[in-house]
């Protein structure tokens, strides 16, 4: 202890001052050693300061993800440089690139294998909504059709700066969580996401009834509902109903209203 500066106690207390709470009385002999904070704060701080991403590249965005971790952008500044190839050891899945139907079951399986707490960041236009390849017959229009996503980063591909911004937003999200309400300590909420299966096209086990409703009713001649029209087109392929859902109609009305306001057209 001989090497400590004479005003050590005072310096330490100044450092600790922002963390100290008025109502908590810390004994004098402990004041230099004890830091009092909330459980949430320390829990979130430790989680977000060592958030290990899954080493998992899908497409072009993966190259920018590597660049983010490499020399110039240096992801190690945020405690995230340890990319883990095993989902068991990682906290964050960066879905970096186009999700194809052939790949989607593997991604969902990997997501299920990650230990909680787990987060998903959807990087780039493709992972978010299909991007330029949205119409493709082998392309999933956004990974959020299958697994929950926490942060979306737009761009094609996003610059490393954009990815870092997305990761900092992820940190903010973690900071707002409370140990009393996070889902992974509750009894009922840690279910596996059903893994999609590859049939004639990819299908979600959660939607089997919906699919049967369309494909099987079309064969018996009775169309799914009167409003939806025939469920199969001339080529015999199930096309689904031609009309829009109520949610979509409401959104279109909103868009029309905005368009009218912008162009100055009366309703």
């Amino acid at each position: 202890m001989a090497s400590l500066p004479p005003n050590f106690q005072q310096l330490k207390q100044e450092q600790l001052k922002p963390f100290l709470h008025d109502q908590i009385i810390v004994p004098d002999e402990l004041q230099a050693n004890v830091l009092i904070t909330t459980v949430d704060k320390i829990y979130n701080w430790s989680r977000r300061s060592s958030m290990w991403p899954l080493l998992f590249g899908l497409a072009c965005c993966a190259i920018e993800m590597i660049a983010t971790a490499a020399s110039r952008y240096d992801l190690a500044r945020f405690g995230m440089e340890v990319m883990r190839p095993s989902p068991r050891q990682s906290d964050l899945m960066i879905v970096s690139g186009t999700v194809t139907k052939k790949m989607a079951p593997a991604i969902v399986r990997i997501y299920n294998q990650m230990a909680e707490p787990r987060y998903v960041l959807s990087m780039g236009a493709c992972a978010t909504g299909g991007g330029p390849f949205k119409e493709g017959y082998n392309v999933v229009s956004g990974i959020d059709k299958y697994i929950p996503v926490d942060v979306y980063v737009p761009g094609c591909p996003p610059m490393p700066e954009a990815l870092i911004y997305g990761l900092l937003k992820m940190h903010e999200k973690v900071d707002r969580q409370s140990v009393t309400s996070v889902p992974w300590y509750r009894k009922d909420s840690s279910a596996f996401v059903p893994v999609p299966r590859l049939g004639p096209d990819i299908f979600d086990p959660r939607q089997v009834e919906l699919i049967k409703d369309t494909t099987l009713k079309a064969t018996t001649g009775a169309s799914a509902t009167a409003a939806n029209g025939p469920a199969a087109d001339a080529e015999g392929r199930a096309r689904g109903p031609k009309t829009l859902s109520d949610k979509a109609k409401a959104r279109m009305e909103e868009a029309k209203k905005r368009w009218r306001a912008k162009k100055g057209v009366p309703a």
């Binding site: 990819i202 919906l210 494909t215 392929r237 199930a238």
Partner: peptide
């Protein structure tokens, strides 16, 4: 929005 399963998929009739 036009497909009941809201995904980029299509299935053969009778499947």
């Amino acid at each position: 929005d036009k497909l009941p399963w809201a995904k980029n998929t299509t299935y053969p009739t009778g499947w």
